[in-house]
Amino acid sequence: MARKFDKAKLTEIVINMFSMNEVMFIYYCGSDNYKTKQKKSDTDLTVVLKDFNGIIHASIDGVDIFAYGYGDFLQRQSINDTLPLYNLIHADDIINMEENIIYMNELYLTDYNHVKSLKFEDVLPEYLDAVITYFNQLINVEKVVVKRSYHIIRVRGILEKFLTTGKYDVNLDEVWLEKIFDHKKNWDKTLSTEEHLLQLKTYLDEIITIREGLSTWKLNIPY
Rank of each mutant, 00 (worst) to 15 (best):
V175R: 03
P84D: 03
K4R: 13
N16Q: 15
L138N: 08
T110R: 11
W217D: 02
K9C: 06
D92C: 13
D182G: 04
H114K: 06
A2G: 07
V23K: 00
L10T: 02
S149L: 04
L118T: 00
H183N: 12
D51I: 01
E195A: 05
Y28E: 13
I152W: 03
L74V: 01
G62A: 12
L118M: 15
D32H: 11
I55V: 12
L204K: 14
T165L: 04
D182N: 15
G166I: 00
K161H: 13
L45D: 01
C29D: 04
G71A: 00
E212R: 06
Y203Q: 11
G62K: 11
Y112H: 02
L74Y: 01
L49Q: 05
F18E: 00
N220L: 13
Y150I: 14
V145W: 06
D188H: 14
E126R: 08
G157R: 05
K35Y: 12
L163D: 04
E195V: 07
I207Q: 06
Y223N: 06
E121G: 08
F5Q: 05
F162R: 05
N80R: 01
P222D: 07
P125M: 08
E98T: 08
L172P: 12
T82A: 07
I153Y: 00
F52I: 02
K201P: 06
F181Y: 15
V141T: 14
N220E: 10
K4S: 13
I207E: 06
K189Q: 12
T110N: 07
R156M: 11
A8D: 08
G71F: 00
H151E: 09
D42E: 12
T110M: 07
D93T: 15
Y203R: 04
E178H: 11
Q38W: 01
G166W: 00
I15R: 15
M17K: 15
I132C: 06
I221A: 04
S192Y: 10
E195K: 07
Y127W: 01
I221S: 03
Y127A: 08
S31Q: 13
L45H: 04
D93W: 01
R3P: 03
S117A: 15
K9I: 12
F181C: 07
Q77G: 02
K7D: 11
F135E: 04
Y103H: 12
N113I: 03
Q77S: 08
F73L: 02
S19Y: 12
D92H: 09
N171Y: 12
E174H: 02
S215C: 02
R211Y: 04
T11N: 05
V146F: 03
L138K: 09
H183T: 05
D182R: 11
Y223M: 10
K147I: 07
E126L: 14
K161T: 14
T82Q: 09
R154V: 02
T110H: 06
I153K: 05
A8R: 09
L163A: 09
V115A: 01
G30P: 02
K50R: 12
E174A: 14
E206G: 07
Q77E: 07
N100I: 00
V175W: 00
K147F: 08
E22P: 09
L138F: 15
V144F: 01
T165G: 05
T190A: 11
N96S: 14
D81M: 11
L10M: 10
I15H: 13
